[in-house]
Amino acid sequence: MHQHFKIYKPYGYLSQFINNGQKQNRKKLLGELGDFPEGTMSIGRLDEKSEGLLLLTTDGKMSDFVNSSKVDKEYYAQVDGLITEAEITELQQGVEIGLSGKKYTTKPCQVFKLNAPPNFPERTKKIRDERHGPTSWVSITLNEGKFRQVRKMTSAVGFPTLRLVRIRVGAIYLDDLNPGNAIEISNLKAELNPQTL
């Protein structure tokens, strides 16, 4: 019987359980956050500087399904500066980013500016504060997951990402999880897409 979990991946952790090379020997890994069954893997990745909802599973087929373009992923990004509707529209329509040395235009997606900063726990490494200039928060929902896509998208419209938190995968939300906490999910497919049942 496969097991599935949702976890709040904190800033500074890799989305993996084992080191893949010499450079990663001193990096923090997911296994340090809990006692997970043998064969547990992360579904997709959040880079070391990103935080938020990460799904874990012992089922490779489930991992492939969630990583497919059928499942939306929503991110809250704190960006440097006061983003305007013009840049929001650009992001919604798709922007050109660099990907493995080639140019790639992102697919149209849902983007909106948050009216107030979200209430996330403070990050372990402090983000610069308002004395260094204003910031904005945007929600970006994608059903593709290119390497560092959200960061590249906000930079492409002139607003580099300062903090990135994934808040949703399908119908599963980060909710009140604290960084490093994990909860077991009994029926991952049903939780991801309850309206299909």
Rank of each mutant, 00 (worst) to 15 (best):
F36N: 01
V79L: 07
T106S: 04
A77R: 01
N193Q: 14
I43K: 05
Q24P: 00
F17W: 02
L142C: 04
T106E: 09
K126T: 09
K126H: 13
Q22N: 12
E122Q: 13
P117Y: 04
E96C: 14
E122N: 13
P194N: 09
Q110P: 00
L177C: 04
R123I: 07
D176T: 06
T154P: 05
V111P: 01
I172Q: 02
T58Q: 03
T89G: 09
G52H: 04
V138H: 01
D35N: 15
A171S: 13
V150K: 03
E90D: 15
L29E: 03
E32A: 13
P160F: 12
I88L: 08
K107T: 08
T58P: 01
G81M: 01
K146E: 00
I83H: 02
T57D: 02
E191H: 11
H2A: 12
Y104L: 14
D47Y: 09
K49Q: 14
S136L: 07
T141K: 15
K146M: 08
Q22K: 13
F5E: 03
G170V: 10
E51C: 03
E87L: 01
V150C: 06
F65G: 02
V165M: 07
P134K: 15
A86Q: 13
H2Q: 11
D129A: 09
T196D: 15
E191G: 03
T124W: 11
R151G: 10
G170T: 13
L33N: 04
V71N: 01
E51K: 06
T124C: 07
E122K: 15
T124Q: 14
I88K: 03
R26Q: 14
